[in-house]
Structures are given as C-alpha cells and as structure tokens.
Amino acid sequence: MRIVHYVNQFYAGLGGEEAAGSGPRVLDGTVGPGRLLAQLLGDAHQIVATIVCGDDYAASTDAAAAELLEMTRDAGAELLVAGPAFGSGRYGLACARLVAAAQAAGLPALAAMHPDNPGLTEAGAAPVVAAGATSRQMRPTLQTVAAAIEKLATGATLTVADGRVARAARTGRLVEQRAAARAVELVLRRLAGERDLTEVPIGGFDVVAPSAPVEAAASATIALVTEGAVVPAGNPDRLESARATRWLRYPIEGIDSLASGEWESVDGGFATTAANADPNRVLPLDAARTLEREGTIGRLHNEFLVTVGNGTPVATARRFGVEWAAELRKAGVQAAILTAT
C-alpha cells in the first residue's frame, strides 16, 4: 500500500514550540518516526510522502483538516497514518481530525495516540491504536502501528486485540426502577458491606501538569478568556446559553471597559443580573487595561476568547482548551487569565 504519513513540526525536526505556528508542507518519503515505521513495515508497504504541519496551525481550526486531507490525496495515499501523538493534546487533536476527515471521505486512515489524549474523541469512525504516554515508547508504539497497517492492508477491521483504543461509552437507557429507588437500594447495599458499589465510576479526573511560568508580566502579552458567555449585546453570533458547541472571539483593541448595555452575558447557568450591570465582573477588561497602561502588563492581547461553560461535556471542554492554547500561542500570547462562572 501507498502510505502517507502525518507528523507535527517537532517530529519532522523543524523545531519545537517556536515552529508550532508553521503551515502544512509535503516532504518526499519518510521523516523522523516514519523512518523506523518504514523499517518495521519492510518492503510490502511504502511511505510515499510525509505531511508536516505545526501543531498550533493544525489544532486551532477545524478547517486545517480539509487542507491536510487534500495534500494527502494529492500525494497518492491509499492509507493515511497519523502520529503517534502520544499524550500531546494539540498533536493528538490534529491527528484525530485528519483521520476522521479521511475516513469520512473514503480514504482508509489510522492514528496512534495515548488513550487519554484529548484528541481521541475527535477521531470519528477512524481507528486509533494506543501509543505510550511519551516518545520514550516510540518503538513499541510503532510496532503496534506497523502490525495494524498489515492487518488493514488485508481489508480486516482492527479490534482491541490489535491495540485499538476502545472507548467506554456510557449509554443511557430506561430501567424499571426510578433513580430515587435505586439510590435507596444502593445505600442499603453499601450499609450491608458492599462499600465500593456505585452506578457511575468515581474519580479518573485529569491532572494537568503546569507549564513554565512567564518571566515577567511587564514584558508579556496576556490574554483575557472566559467561559462566562460575555458577548456584544443582542448576541449577534448566537452563542448558545448552554451546551456550547463552539467558541467565539471579539476584538477589544481600543476598548477600555466593557460597558453595560453594550456587552452582556448569555450564560444560562447562573443569575446574570450582576454580570449585565457591569460585564467587567465576568471579564475584567477595565482593570487589565489600567494595568497595561501602567506597564504592569506588557500588552493585552487584542481579542478575547469566549464560550459558555454550562452543561458542557468534559470532552468538548477539553477540545476547546486545546484549541484555545493553539490559538493563543499562534498569536504570540504568553499567559491567559481565564474567568469561570
């Protein structure tokens, strides 16, 4: 099979974060991890081209996947392989969106990433095989990928036995007993000694490793971002009041304060009387602008990012987070102040 391989700027050797904003390009043959993958595949399959793109470019917008897919097709792919992205959020999101787009367009595709990668849920119908958490697991991960490619080439479907990541889906259904009766039942069984019984598994929350601190706020570009649904009055772009599917950006260049009547919160999850009387209570533009003028903040980013955090599934919130990080990095922002309601 003719394989096109997708990797990010780092694994292509173009650079780290400083090159993350670079756009897509096509390179002949194998690059970086593709060399080892080609070795593992032997002569039966050939990596004909490698598509490279910076993570910030690829992860900050949905549209990048279509662009990358077109390049993949032009390179004559019979199979697209993306990653391994390990635990990297932006890389994982880019890989997942690309394989999802390819699979949906009829081009077989395969991605590799760690099962906890926030991009995983974006892979759509495309198979994803498990990678280790970091590139220290490069060789075993590529062995899994190579075996998966062999199997896909025979026309077979990948299963959990092939390292495919199975997602535990929580499927809703109607049952005989109402929830209050089940709660009484559960209390009684726990009191009788079955201490660990629960309907919903407890725990499993992400622990985020903090990034390095900003050296000096006085020389940094700082962004204001919020999930408090602050939008221009009248909500011209129709941000949802709950269950956000998207996020928006609004320019604040030349604006010193969010005036009541010009801006409002459309969040359906909390009482907005105080927010609408003074929208700076949700997005502290007035105070940040003063601190910028006084030189405490080097520069305030010229737009704010906003969504509504009300009934948002965790997976969606994680995706917004990855996209915001990519977006802000691309814009040269070093830190963000996120207000949450």
Partner: peptide, 30 residues
C-alpha cells in the same frame, strides 16, 4: 446526571466525590 457527551465516551462526572457512591440519572447530552 452524567455529562459524557452525545456519544457517551467522555468522562461522566464534572465534579465527583472522593468516596461514596453515585447513582446515574441519565446522560445530559444523549
């Protein structure tokens, strides 16, 4: 109520107890 997304594959709880037990009243986004 669980918040595991339309396909049910996301984490079900936004904030959950360290111990104790949780009864599900369904998935918000199904």
């Amino acid at each position: 109520a669980e918040l595991s997304g339309a396909d049910g594959t996301g984490p079900p709880l936004v904030a959950g107890p360290r111990r104790g037990a949780v009864v599900s009243t369904g998935n918000y986004d199904q």
